[in-house]
Design a protein around this nucleic acid. Structure first.
Length: 811
DNA sequence: CATGTACGACTTTTT
DNA sequence: GTCGTACATG
């Protein structure tokens, strides 16, 4: 399978003795060099964390262009996030300049949208289709579950949504699923019905959900080989990053794209999945495929990622070349040793050891707080300390397992004046008022989308409720017109004159905005049309007025958010002079707001471990390293769950360049109740001599108590890193306790949690507390591990104590 | 049809 | 502590 351009690579026809891409190889190690220069049909780059894979990938692309083996338009590079795509584009651009234009560097989803917009009319959609995010699709599924009375069969909207999503990721549809399902189970039948109607509703609304973007593109390629061939001929070099996190649909998409053009036109080979390299002699060969991944960083199995895509790559693409990148250029040896030790607890993985030559570096810092606020205060103090030593805020990050953990950190950071920024989390575009405004835009851009229309029907309040909505829907169904068109016939809906007027007014506003944003005669709408249309919609619909008239103080913030959205449209117009309303909507649906506007701003980044993948920071704080949180409780029952959690922990560790902190809290308020937390099993997997516990779980148990660092820590000085005694020199000396044997508690954690267990306590009892002295129990509330004693202490007043772990004794 | 109150369920991670 | 739903009332 000799590539026509191979001679260039070995130097044969390159000008003189210098390779045209020689400068691109500077500073690369052997395997990296090979990953850049290898030419062939299929290449797998197994890239450990921090092994310079982004650099390799960008140089590979640059090399292909520089040697003129490929035009920019022949390159398709897939990344995991839009942010990564932007960075890659920038880096390629800085390597080779203008010639980077014309490449497709994007996420799977963005690439598929681009294809679908062009080809939608081939299979019953228009190019104005809308994209349903998970919130939109949940709303639709919720309605359908209700209509089909799915709750009677134990079907919840959330459960139904995730099952449908999983099936779509497997390229199944309602029909094919029904064939394999146990249809004598009524719950299954209802599920299949809901799945089917969901898909019909999407089609009717001229809409795709996130999963459809991939799955329907695959369907398109399979159903219309001549369409697929267009893209097969175009993309000669396909590169996929984070390949370990691809799901089956994405895998199939890549397979479709790398087949030789014209291959399914042959009747004999049509439908044969295994004939990827079975090109006719005269036929053009399939695109060359480069995938990069690390199975140790696979953390998206929950959304269908299939690790086999990478582990069986060599089987899927016979003759594939495999390059291993194991040298790490990011972290110190201590951090890598911890990472290696942790990940080696996962069985059935190929052994792979990261190494570096930069030296051991600082030890990992451990801290155990009494509460999550206490833990957060440690993080804040430590950040301030590092900042004083010259570490920029933007070079520090705090990770956590679940989004809800960000709240406690936020509270303390505000109080401690630590500048921070939360990546992801509750998103701007998920706010109700923003979704409303976008629904107005969708109602204009895609009149078939009745979901959007239903959403804005009564926003602001127009007196249009369920009854009227149903009347409109029925009228539309009876006359076989769209929901949107039904609005124009308000007189025939059988509703009162007041409602008629309200409907007429909404209809008029939408029509007026349509004229602005989608001029009829095919003339191009000016780039300002989105801004203009949006302000028109919000003003004339009465949305702005309703918010301004409101007494709810939150509505002021909503107005500000909407102003922000208008500003976003202006920005969009500036960046996309040709951009239409449809482009705008695509962008806001697919681009997470965590993607833009980052670092430079000089603040600490807070994010989930999932979001952290692919990023790196000088100092990293891994918080909430507790059982039931990391690993998360829910993962325990899922096949492969605990191992995936371990990989998540591994990903977190390997983000750190110089300083890693792991922290946990002994108690955590969740859901209003305080619960006792146990140190994570993963902590024990880190060799004890790598962690310098400022305050180990053992310390906390020994001293016990509800004393909160968050409340009294301001006067404290965070100790200097590395030096000093093992337990940190800023802590109150442990009273009375024999100096603990250092080998005893670091990492020997769960066994030593203080446990008063079944201590009998009742109102009226007198107790002694290690820190608070004597007091009298007023009441006992809660049960089991969450039993709380309300105690009035003689000297410090009333306190609430968790009976199970408080350092108390009965008198 | 809109508003207010009470109750319950729930929180894993994301394009 | 938060969200959304169910019900009762105006």
């Amino acid at each position: 399978m000799t590539d026509a351009s191979t001679p260039l690579i070995v130097g044969g026809s390159a000008p003189a003795d210098a390779r045209p891409d020689a400068d691109l190889l500077e500073g690369l190690n052997g395997p990296q060099r090979e990953a850049v220069t290898y030419r062939g049909q299929a290449l797998l780059i197994v890239a450990g964390a921090g092994s310079g894979k982004t650099s390799v990938l960008t140089r590979r692309i640059a090399s292909l262009l520089r040697t003129r083996e490929a035009y920019p338009s022949q390159i398709l590079a897939i990344t995991f996030t839009n942010k990564a795509a932007g960075e890659m584009r920038e880096r390629v651009h800085s390597l080779i300049g203008q010639r980077a234009d014309g490449m497709w560097i994007s996420t799977f989803h963005s690439a598929c949208v681009r294809i679908l917009r062009r080809e939608a009319q081939q299979f019953g959609f228009t190019k104005a289709f809308t994209i349903y995010d998970s919130g939109d699709s949940r709303a639709l599924i919720k309605r359908l579950v209700k209509e089909h009375e799915g709750d009677a069969f134990g079907l919840t909207p959330a459960g139904t949504q995730s099952r449908i999503s999983k099936l779509k990721n497997e390229l199944a549809d309602a029909e094919s699923y029904a064939r394999s399902a146990n249809m004598s189970d009524p719950a299954e039948r209802v599920f299949v019905e809901i799945f089917g109607s969901y898909q019909r509703e999407l089609q009717r609304a001229n809409a795709f959900d996130f999963d459809d973007l991939i799955a329907q593109t695959v369907y398109l390629f399979r159903a219309f080989p001549q369409v697929a061939d267009v893209y097969r001929k175009r993309f000669r070099h396909i590169l996929v990053d984070e390949y370990q996190d691809t799901n089956h649909a994405q895998y199939a998409l890549i397979h479709e794209l790398t087949r030789p053009p014209g291959s399914d036109a042959e009747p004999m080979s049509a439908g044969g999945g295994m004939m990827i390299f079975d090109a006719e002699p005269e036929a053009e060969s399939g695109a060359s495929l480069t995938v990069v991944g690390d199975s140790d960083q696979s953390i998206y199995a929950f959304r269908g990622a299939d690790i086999r895509n990478i582990s069986e790559f060599e089987r899927d693409y016979p003759g594939a070349k495999v390059v291993l990148l194991e040298q790490n250029y990011r972290s110190t040896q201590n951090i890598l040793s911890a990472a290696n030790a942790v990940i080696s607890n996962n069985f059935d993985r190929k052994d792979k050891k990261l190494w570096t030559d930069v030296g051991a570096g600082d030890p990992i810092i451990g801290f155990t707080g009494y509460s999550q606020h206490d833990e957060a205060q440690f993080v804040a103090d430590e950040i301030e300390s590092l900042h004083r030593k010259g570490v920029d805020y933007s070079q520090m990050a705090v990770f956590y397992r679940t989004n809800s953990q960000s709240r406690a950190l936020e509270e303390i950071f505000i109080r401690s004046a630590v500048p921070y920024k939360i990546m992801g989390g509750t998103k701007f575009y998920e706010r109700a008022e923003i979704k409303d405004a976008l629904a107005y835009l969708v109602a204009v851009a895609n009149p078939a989308d009745s979901m959007a229309l239903r959403r804005i029907l009564n926003r602001p309040r127009r007196g249009i409720g369920d009854v009227t909505e149903t009347a409109i829907a029925r009228y539309a169904a009876e006359h076989d017109i769209t929901f949107r068109d039904a609005l124009a016939n308000s007189a025939q809906l059988g509703v009162g004159p007041k409602l008629q007027k309200a409907i007429d007014q909404l209809d008029a506003v939408l029509s007026e905005a349509t004229a602005v944003m989608l001029p009829a005669s095919g003339e191009l709408a000016p780039s300002t049309s989105v801004t203009e249309g949006l302000t028109l919609l919000l003003n004339k619909s009465g949305y702005f007025d309703a918010l301004r008239a409101s007494k709810d103080p939150q509505d002021e913030a909503r107005l500000e958010n909407l102003d922000e959205l208008v500003a976003v449209t202006r920005e969009f117009a500036r960046n996309n002079p040709e951009g239409t309303i449809i482009d705008f909507l695509t962008e806001v649906t697919l681009v997470a707001d965590a993607d833009d506007l980052d670092d430079a701003s000089g603040s600490v980044s807070l994010m989930t471990l999932h979001t952290a993948k692919g990023l790196e920071y000088d100092a990293v704080f891994l918080t909430g390293v507790e059982e039931d949180l990391l690993p998360h409780r829910i993962s325990a029952n899922e096949p492969g769950g605990p191992q995936e959690e371990r990989r998540l922990f591994y990903v977190g560790i390997t983000r750190a360049r110089k300083r890693l902190h792991v922290s946990l809290a002994m108690t955590r308020a969740q859901f209003g109740e305080v619960t006792v937390a146990m140190p994570s099993r993963f902590l024990q997997e880190i060799p004890a001599d790598l962690i310098d516990w400022r305050q180990s779980p053992g310390d906390v148990n020994g001293r016990g108590g509800m004393q909160s660092r968050a409340l009294n820590a301001r006067g404290r000085r965070p100790g200097q890193t590395g030096g000093g005694n093992r337990y940190g020199d800023d802590l109150v000396p442990l009273p009375k306790r024999a100096p603990a044997d250092p080998s005893k508690f670091p990492n020997r954690i769960p066994a030593k949690v203080r446990d008063n267990g079944d201590m009998e306590l009742a109102a009226g009892d007198r107790i002694r507390h290690d820190d608070f002295g004597e007091g009298r129990v007023d009441a006992i509330t809660g049960e089991g591990a969450k039993r709380v004693a309300h105690v009035r202490f003689d000297t410090v007043g009333a306190k609430k104590l968790l009976v199970k772990i408080a350092p108390i004794s009965k008198l």
